[in-house]
Amino acid sequence: MANSDVYFTSPHKRRMYIARKVGSTTLTYAFLGLLGLFMIVPFVFMIITSFRNADAYDLDVAHRVFNLIPSWWNSEVNASNYTLDNYATVFNYRNPVTGEAINFAFFYINTVYVSVVSTIFTLITSVLAAFAFARCNFKGKNLLFTILLATMMIPGEMMVITNYQTVKLLGWDNTFAALIFVHGVSVFYIFYLRQTFQQIPNELFLAAKVDGYGHFRYLLRVMIPIAMPTIVTITILSLMGSWNAYIWPNLVASGKWRLNDQWSMKLVSNGLMSLFTNSDTGLSRDTVRIAGSMVCTLPLFVFFLIFRKYIMRGVSRSGIKG
C-alpha cells in the first residue's frame, strides 16, 4: 500500500482516502479469506478424519453429534482418538464375502507404472511430431495440423465407444497396454510443444547446419534443451493426468491382472471407488474411506508442492492461447 505517491488538497480528503483504502483492503482480505476457507475446509476435514478412531467416529454418527475435533475428555471409547488403523486397513483389506483384496499398495504400483511409461511414450511421440510441425516443411503440413486441432473439439466419449471395442478385439482388456497406448498421444501437447519450438530463432538452425548437424541431432542437442521448461510442464501434467484418470481405466482395467490373479489391475481412483462401494467391499467405515481419499491425494500434494511453479505455469499457459 504505497500511499506516498498520492497527494491531497486537504487533510480531510487524505483521511477519507485512507479510510476508504483501509476499508476496501479489509473487505478484500475478508472476501478472499472466506472463500479460501471454503476451498481448504474439505482438506482439513479429510486430514483430521482419516486419523480418527473408527469406533469413536461411528459412535458420534450414531449419537448424531458432530465432532470435527473429538472431545477427548468424555469419549466413550477410551482408546486414543487418533490412530493409524484406517491407513493400515486401506493397505490391507480383504472383502469377507468375495475375498477380493483392496490394497492400495497394488493400486499405487499400477498407477506409478502406467503414469511413468505413458508419460515417456507421450513425450517421445509429442516431441517428434511437434518437431516435424515446427521445423520441417512438407506437403500437407497445414492440412494435417488443422485436422489435429479440429479433433480437440470432439468429445472423448465418441472415441471411447470405439476404443473400448478395439481394446476388446485386440485382447488388451486388463492389460497395461490399454492404459498406456490408447491415450498415449495428445494433440494438445503437440500443439503446446510446437509453439515453443517455433519461438526458437531460425539462425540457430542455420548455425547448427554449418556445424554439420542434421535435423535429428539439432532436435536432440539444441531444441530439446531450449524447450526444457515446456517439456517439464508436459511431463508433470501427463503424470497428474494418469494419476487422476478414472473413466477409461474403469472400463478397460477393473479386473485382475491376467498374469497374476492376486493382483488387481485397478488404478488409485478406481480402487478408491470400489473402497466406497458397499457391494464391492462390505466395508462401511467412513474413516477408512476418508483415509483412502487421503492416500489418493497425498502424492499429488507432495508433487504439487515440489513443482508448484511448473504446474501453475503450464496450466495458465494452456489458457492463454485463446
Binding site: 474439505p42 482438506f43 479429510m46 454418527v61 453429534v65 458432530f66 494419476w243 471407488m273 476418508i290 491425494t297
Partner: peptide, 25 residues
Amino acid sequence: LPYVTNAIALGMVFKIIFTDGDAGL
C-alpha cells in the same frame, strides 16, 4: 489446490461432509 487433487477422492470427502443428520459437517 483443488486443481491438483483427485476429483474422485475429494468428491467422496464431500459425500461424507454432506452426511445426513447432525453428524454431517
